[in-house]
Structures are given as C-alpha cells and as structure tokens.
Amino acid sequence: MKPQSPTLKILTILSSLLFLAALAMVFLYAPLEETMNYVQKVFYFHIATAWVGMLGFMAAAVAGVVYLVRHDRKWDLLEMAAIEISLVFFLITIILGSIWARPVWNTWWTWDPRLTTAAIVELVYLACLLLRQGIDDPERRARFSAVYTLVGSLSVPIAFLSIRLFRTIHPVVIGTNTASNLGAFNMTPPMLATMFFCLFTFSVVFATLLWHRVRLEQLNVAIEERQMEIL
C-alpha cells in the first residue's frame, strides 16, 4: 500500500482548517436573519452538505458510465467512494432540513420534491450497496453497480420532475423568489459570502474524503488480490 501522498496530507489539513473557518464564519460573521432568527444558520451547512451529496451523485453516475465503457477497476472504486459519501451527506442534509423545517414550517417532513427526491437518492444508494454486498465476484459487482447507478441517476431527475408536478413549498433561495414559499428570505451580502464560503469548503472536503475513501477501497482490492494468491 502506497503511503499518503503529500498532496493528500495537505488537502486533509486544508479541509480541516476550512471546516473550522466555515463554522466560525457561520456563527461569528453571518448576520442574524430577521424572521427566522438563529435557526436560519442551519441553512449554510444544509446547502453545503446538499452540494456534496449532489457532487457525489454526479461523480458516481459519471464513474459508472466510464466503467461500463472502459472496464477499468479504478472507476468502480471511485463510484463506490462517491456513493458512500453522497449517502452520508444527503442524510445530514435531510436531518438538517428537518430540524430547520420544524420551527419554520411547523413540521419535520413534507413530501416536497426536493425532500422526497433526496430520500429516493438515499434509497437508491442503499439498494446499490445491498446489491454490491450480494455479489462476490469483483468484476461482476463493478458491472452491476455501474448499471444500477446509471439507471438510478436517470430515474432520480425524472422522479424530481414528476414530484415537482405537485405544488412545492420548499423555499427557492436562489433565483425566483415567490411569497408563497414559506421560509424564503432575502440574502444580504455577508450571508451570501458565508454561503459561498461553505460551498467552497465542502467542495474541498468532498475531494479529500473521496480520495481517502478510494484509498480505503484500494486496500480492499489489495486484500482481495492477496487472498486470490494464497488460495
């Protein structure tokens, strides 16, 4: 197993520092929002974790397609890593959203397009992990999970659109803002700055985690190969 490359070490330290800075910015720099008060601060990490989930979702889809074309094992490792990270961060997003929604919408959960779609993504990924667990041959496991990820990554946007045909109450913070979206608010420049800093931070965190997760999977592959040699 190769030791950590200096770039990864630097990246790890950088993402920890950025994470602390993002927390500090949320609590010390970002101004209080007028109607929602402190609970609005949940929003910054909610958006940021959702962004990581989306990045993971797209990375997994792309890695899956590339695997199906090239049949190179490293894309399977990347796909697996992206799925797992996306799963964890979407879970955090959903919980944060619930915590925010309880005081603002007066409910933990609504069947709104974004919430429901996030839940569907979680289910698709859980199904994918179960599928992987049920297959011993690594090559077949990679093929099946790539096909399933492809099917999932096409179906999820359609699911989003179809659920959107119902009326949505999720606030649209960026872009058009209508009064009917309860809990929407206008962002002041410091709030925007905080949000973009959080997005940047979590992008770096995503890259770092992805790298670490791929290395973990490489270790797994090494063990598999060693076992094959012995047997």
Partner: peptide, 10 residues
C-alpha cells in the same frame, strides 16, 4: 427556541 434548533442542527 431558535437557538435550540440551531444547536441541534450543528
């Protein structure tokens, strides 16, 4: 209340 929910979130 607001602070309670924020702390729960973080």
């Amino acid at each position: 209340i607001s602070i309670k929910y924020m702390l729960a979130g973080y």
